[in-house]
Write a protein that binds this DNA or RNA. Structure first.
Length: 158
DNA sequence: GCCAACGTTGGC
DNA sequence: GCCAACGTTGGC
């Protein structure tokens, strides 16, 4: 089966690509997603070996900053059962988990970040989910062509 | 800090 | 099942 590609948003103040690079085994679980559309992608679609574009949201500037890889497919996000967690969901049941996460591993940091306004200038990305008006999804599908374009741009020296 | 866009909730 | 109110996201 062909490799698929995704974009994950993170606020660098809470977890940046540098944090991922420094993490044990350069790997982290991607917890705290509480949106059904994103949940469905995490639970059903993302597979080991899939490519991930790491994107910094609420950043100055917001930008695609590097690449990661899915190293564990969807499994229940334990924070939904933890009353002390910010992500606690009193309606989630351990035998019927509502929220899922994947594990991702650091692959590379782009030699230059790709800010939103730069991405918007690239014709190949015209239909990208990220660039659609009002798009807020924190887990997004990326087409192979979009992936190729972004990787090439990110590896090109500024 | 503002606010547009979107998702979720809950009354009916 | 509709939809108004509310909460959140995220760029600026």
């Amino acid at each position: 089966m062909a490799t698929r590609y995704w974009l994950l948003k993170s606020e660098p103040e809470s977890f940046s690509i540098d944090d991922l690079q420094r993490a044990p085994k350069q790997t982290t679980f991607w917890n705290g997603v509480r949106n059904y559309q994103a949940r469905n992608l995490l639970r059903d679609e993302m597979k080991v070996g899939d490519g991930v574009i790491f994107y910094h949201s609420n950043a100055d500037p917001a930008a695609a900053v590097g690449l990661a890889e899915v190293v564990r497919a969807g499994y229940p996000d334990g924070t939904q059962f933890d009353p002390k967690s910010d992500y606690y969901d009193p309606d989630a049941k351990p035998d019927d988990p509502r929220w899922f996460m994947v594990d991702i591993k650091f692959k590379e940091k782009f030699v230059r970040p790709l800010p939103l306004d730069l991405l918007r200038t690239l014709p190949a990305l015209a239909d990208m989910v990220l660039l659609r008006r009002g798009s807020r999804l924190s887990v997004q599908p990326v087409t192979p062509a979009e992936w190729k374009t972004i990787v090439a741009q990110g590896r090109r020296p500024a």
